[in-house]
Amino acid sequence: MNLKRMIKSNLLTSITRFLSGIGYRMIARVWRLGAGTRLFFLTIVYSGESFRRFHLTLREIYFTGVMSLLIIIVSAFFVGMVLALQGYNTLQKYGSSEAIGVLVALSLVRELGPVVTALLFAGRAGTAITAEIGLMKTTEQLSAMEMMAVNPIARVVAPRFWAGVISMPILAALFSMVGVLGGYLVAVPLIGVDSGAFWSQMQANVDVRDDIVNGVIKSVVFAVACTMIALFEGFDAPPTAEGVSHATTRTVVISSLTVLGLDFVLTSFMMVV
């Protein structure tokens, strides 16, 4: 009897603890979301300098954009080639292997270009941004800037933000272009699909408004999300070696999940509208 009551009360406390743990984590998540949003608005407010002194932004475009070129181009090439192989395999069963060009182009422009670019960007440039800003915080460089009456959001965060927002759509466009080239090389010289059919079908079926503009919208949204997450994680990192390393990991995890989730939301909107 007594034992039963003890188990019951123990169970009750562990359930309470479990629930309050969930609540605590939820509150922490919501709090971070709010803090991130606040940083986003402050970044927009203090963006003037990034354009007035555009060389600040240009320098970051070099570090985030230009330095990501190689990984983007190589990945795009392989993705395009695999698309062509897989696509041909399926299409030829229905006797429409000339549609391979359309398949490759649409997959890239609509989905793979923006999404894979964003994922690669989070891993290549996002982590670098988080680590750099986290380390600047750890070594009191941001504090020093503040004490010099220089706003770190205007001087450090905003130029990196705009650099990401400018670079990523260009990288995504490049990804699609190189991907199509990779698909062409597999489909035409390798498999022997007619070159004229490959290009003309693509030209006839890829729509500027529905496909290309939508792809660009996606990659701009992903750019804002990925860059902002990387910046916030760095800015918010506890000023220790461990804090910065955790923040860097979180940048990749949160960016990737956000990009995939947003992709679903955006795609459904674009299908409806």
Partner: peptide
């Protein structure tokens, strides 16, 4: 106002806090 006051101050941080880039 704070920024105006800070322009009158110079601070040497414990580890220098030089901009590493």
């Amino acid at each position: 106002g704070i920024f105006l006051l800070r322009r009158k101050m110079g601070m040497l941080f414990q580890h220098g806090a030089l901009f590493t880039d």
